[in-house]
Design a protein around this nucleic acid. Structure first.
Lengths: 336, 336
DNA sequence: CTGTTAGCGCTTTCAA
DNA sequence: TTGAAAGCGCTAACAG
C-alpha cells in the first residue's frame, strides 16, 4: 500500500494525499475526507522508512540500558516508552550487559538506525568512548542514572541519599554498618553510593568496615551469608541495589539471622516489587519511571528546538527513603 | 555520511561501495580494503532507512507485550533481544497495558514501521482484531504465552502445569486449595491456568472453592488477606502468577499466618527473582527467556524461507515445578 | 487549493 | 570486476 495507490483511487495527486495526512488544514475538508476515506478502505499506512529517508527524522529514540533483568531498568524503560509514545516517538532499546564494548556497538547501531536522539545508561560517563562519539554529533542525548558534569544527566543524588541511609541506621542504634555492592568499577552509581556511605559513616564518627564487593550475582547469597557468620558481624547492611538487598535477606536467613530482628537491611533503587515483599524492603526509592519519562521530555524538547542538550540542562530528581520492614532498630542482643 | 561520500573519496562508484559491504567477495580484495579503509576514516554507517526502503526488509522485529513491569515479560523481552541481535535483527517493542485497543494500535504502528515480523502476547487470540489483521498479510508473526489452534504459538502447557500443581499440593496433604487470579477475562493464560486448577481438583475428588479474582493489583493484598481470615480458610493458595503469589505471601503475614507453616503458596511464571526470595517462591517455572528466543528463531526461519508460519509450527516448551520454600505440607494445626 | 517533480541513501539490474 | 542509472515511498519546493 503506497501513497500512489491512494492518490490514484482518490483521483488526486500524491502531494495532496501527503498533505491530507500531515497538514490536514492545507486541503479542503472535502478532499481531506475523501482521502481519509480511501486510505481507510485501502488500509493505507504511511511508510516510516520512506518518510524518515525524506525528512531525515525517524521519530525514534534510541535507548541503551545495561539489562532488562533488573526491574530498575525495566521500570525506567516503561517510563521511557510511555513518554515517547505520548510525544509521538517509538523507541529502539538495546542492552549492554554492563559491557563497555557493547555500549559502543549499541551507539553505532542506533546511529545507523537514524534515531533522532538517545537515552543511555553507561558504566562510566567520564571514560566512555560511546559518549565521545555522541558528543561529536548525531543528535541530542541524555544520560539516565549516570551523573557527570560533562553530560546532561537525569538522576538522583545517590551520594547524599546513601549518606542519609547511614544516618538513619545510626539513629536506630546501629554502629556496625556494612556496605554490600556489586563490582565498584562496573558503574559510577555504585561508586557514588559507596562514597555516600563512607561520608555518612565519617559524619557519624564510625569506622567503615571493608566494602563487601560481590562480583557475581550467583554467589552473592553465599558471600554475604559467610560474611554474616563472622564474629562482630554487622548489625545493618546497606546494599547498593535492591536485588542485592533481596539476596542479603536470603543470606541472613541462611546464616540463621532474622530480618529485621537480628539484622537491618536497606537497599537502593526502589523497585516496585520491594513494597510487596515480606518483610517490605527498606530502600532509597528513585523515581525510575519518571527518570525515563523526564529524559524523553528533555530529548523531545531539544529535538523541537533543534538544539543539542547542554550538560547543565540535566535534572536531579528527588529520592525518598522508603521505610520498609527490613530495617529496624538494633536489638539488645546485638548491642554491645 | 552517505555512500556517495565514501565512493567519491575512494574513487569508485557507489555500487562498488555497496557491494564491498554487502557482498565482499564480489569485489577485488584491493577494492574492498580500500573501501573499508575510507569508510572507517569517514565513520560511514549504512543508512538503515534507505536500505529498508530499497530492499523492503527492515531487519527489525516488532514485539507487542502487555507490560514491562511484570518481570515475566521483561525476561521474555530479554530473550527476544538477545536472539534477535544474534540473528542480525533489532527489535521494536510496544506495550499494551493489557488493553485490546492498544494491541490493535501497536500492530498498526509496527506495520507502518516496516517490521519484518512480529512477536506478540495478546489477551485473547481467538477474538483479537489485531491478529485478524496480521493473518491478512504483513509478514510472519508468532504468539508468545498464548495458545490457540489457529495461530503459531510458543508457550507451555499451562493447563497441565496447573493440574500438576494441585496434584502436588494434594500429595502434601492439602484439601482446601484455593486459586487466586487476576481478571480471568484479561488473558487466555489466566483462563487456562484456572481450567487446569479445576481439572486437578476434580481429579483429586476435591470441591474447588470459588475463584478469588483480584481485579486490581493495588488491592490484591487486602483482598487475599480478607479471604484468609475466613473460617475454613484454605491451607494452600495457587496463584495465577508470581506477582500475585508474592502479594499473597504478604497477605498471609497480614492475616497473621506464616508461610509455609500455616499456608502454602504456589505461583506461576518462574520469574528469576522468586529464587532469591525468603521464603523462596514455589512456582511453575516457564522458560521465559527461551520463549522469547525460540519465537525469534521461528520468525527468522520463516523470514529466511519466505514463508509465513503455520499454526502447527508453534512450540510447546517444557515447564518445571520449582519447589521453593513457600510451599510445604499441611500442618497439623490446619488438618482437620 | 492542488499538481508536478526532485531527491533523501541505498541496492540491483544491465552493460561495459 | 566495475559503473550508470532506475526506483523503493515519501515530502517539500515550486508552479499553476
Amino acid at each position: 500500500m503506497s501513497i500512489q495507490a491512494v492518490a490514484k483511487k482518490a483521483g488526486v495527486s500524491v502531494a495532496t494525499v501527503s498533505r491530507a495526512f500531515n497538514f490536514p488544514d492545507k486541503v479542503t475538508p472535502a478532499t481531506r475526507m475523501l482521502v481519509e476515506q480511501v486510505a481507510r478502505e485501502l488500509g493505507y499506512l504511511p511508510n516510516a522508512s520512506a518518510r524518515t529517508l525524506r525528512t531525515q527524522r525517524s521519530r525514534v529514540l534510541g535507548v541503551v540500558l545495561p539489562t532488562l533483568l533488573n526491574p530498575t531498568f525495566a521500570e525506567c524503560l516503561h517510563g521511557i516508552a510511555s513518554a515517547a509514545h505520548a510525544a509521538g516517538y517509538a523507541i529502539l532499546p538495546l542492552t549492554t550487559a554492563y559491557e563497555i564494548a557493547q555500549e559502543e556497538e549499541a551507539v553505532g547501531r542506533l546511529i545507523a538506525a537514524n534515531v533522532d536522539g538517545m537515552i543511555l545508561v553507561v558504566s562510566n560517563p567520564g571514560t566512555s568512548a560511546a559518549l565521545a562519539r555522541l558528543q561529536a554529533g548525531h543528535g541530542p542525548y541524555v544520560l539516565a542514572y549516570n551523573r557527570h558534569p560533562g553530560h546532561p544527566c537525569v538522576s538522583v543524588d545517590s551520594e547524599a541519599a546513601s549518606a542519609e541511609v547511614v544516618q538513619r541506621l545510626v539513629a536506630l542504634g546501629h554502629r556496625r554498618i556494612a556496605m554490600v555492592s556489586g563490582t565498584l568499577a562496573a558503574s559510577d552509581r555504585a561508586q557514588q553510593r559507596y562514597r555516600g556511605y563512607l561520608k555518612g559513616m565519617a559524619a557519624a564518627g564510625l569506622k567503615a568496615p571493608p566494602l563487601l564487593e560481590v562480583p557475581f550475582v550467583e554467589t552473592a547469597v553465599d558471600a554475604v551469608s559467610r560474611h554474616l557468620r563472622q564474629r562482630d558481624r554487622p548489625t545493618a547492611l546497606f546494599c547498593s541495589n535492591d536485588l542485592l538487598a533481596i539476596r542479603s535477606i536470603r543470606a541472613a536467613a541462611q546464616a540463621g539471622l532474622q530480618v529485621p530482628r537480628d539484622l537491618a537491611v536497606v537497599g537502593f533503587d526502589g523497585i516496585a516489587l520491594g513494597e510487596d515483599l515480606t518483610p517490605m524492603l527498606s530502600t532509597v526509592a528513585q523515581p525510575n519511571s519518571e527518570i525515563g519519562a523526564r529524559s524523553v521530555e528533555l530529548l523531545v524538547q531539544a529535538l523541537a528546538s533543534g538544539q543539542r542538550l547542554a550538560p547543565s540542562s540535566g535534572l536531579l530528581l528527588p529520592h525518598a527513603f522508603r521505610a520498609g520492614e527490613s530495617c529496624g532498630p538494633v536489638s539488645s542482643r546485638k548491642a554491645d
